[in-house]
């Protein structure tokens, strides 16, 4: 067993876990943050993407204990005081989600992208999403959702909180 201390969505957490516990499992099973999903076992689909110290990471491919001491942000931490993050708003406005399963990972990956490029081209968005699978939307509206969020961020209405 190993002790893990993290800041998750701004809250300190301290737990004992088995050494082999993956961060995705830790978030889902130990912290009940079930917004982070697991869609594959080969580090491919990106449904489990979260931000570790501001960077998009596949939480199924990192041990909880490896992340000890990190700042973690999950989909549950994206809205602030009940106000949706521009990406969450973009996905709603542009119908960027259907079944919702890939959505948290998509949003977290997009948050990483927009944190260093707030005016990405369609091609840049599509390339940034290469590690996230969606089976419902054909990606068309996901691209528009991210463009929507980027525009809102550029207009200064909201800061990127990645």
């Amino acid at each position: 067993m190993a002790k893990v201390e993290l800041i998750v969505n701004g809250q300190s957490v301290e737990k004992e876990v088995e050494d082999r516990t993956l961060l995705a499992q830790f978030l889902r099973d130990t912290l009940q943050l079930t917004g982070t999903h697991v869609g594959c076992d080969t580090s491919s689909c990106g449904a489990c993407t979260i931000l570790v110290d501001g960077k998009a990471v596949k939480s199924c491919t990192i041990l909880a204990v490896q992340a000890d001491g990190s700042h973690i942000k999950t989909i549950e931490g994206m809205a602030t005081n009940g106000a949706l993050h521009p990406l969450q708003e973009g996905f709603k406005e542009e119908h960027g989600l259907q079944c919702g399963f890939c959505t948290p990972g998509m949003i977290m990956t997009a948050a990483d992208l927009l944190s260093h490029n707030n005016d990405p081209s369609e091609q840049e968005i599509r390339e940034a999403l290469e590690g996230n699978f969606c089976r419902c939307t054909g990606y068309h509206n996901i691209v528009r959702s991210i463009q929507h969020a980027a525009k809102k961020i550029r207009s200064g209405e909201a800061a990127v909180s990645a």
Binding site: R28, D29, G35, H37, E76, A79, F91, L97, G100
Partner: peptide, 23 residues
């Protein structure tokens, strides 16, 4: 009309409840 989806709120905030989420 292209009414925005009412189910989106829970999915966008990580509050969707899928079978594996249930304990």
């Amino acid at each position: 009309k292209s009414v925005k989806r009412v189910e989106d709120q829970r999915f966008l905030t990580g509050k969707g409840r899928y079978t594996d989420d249930i304990v």
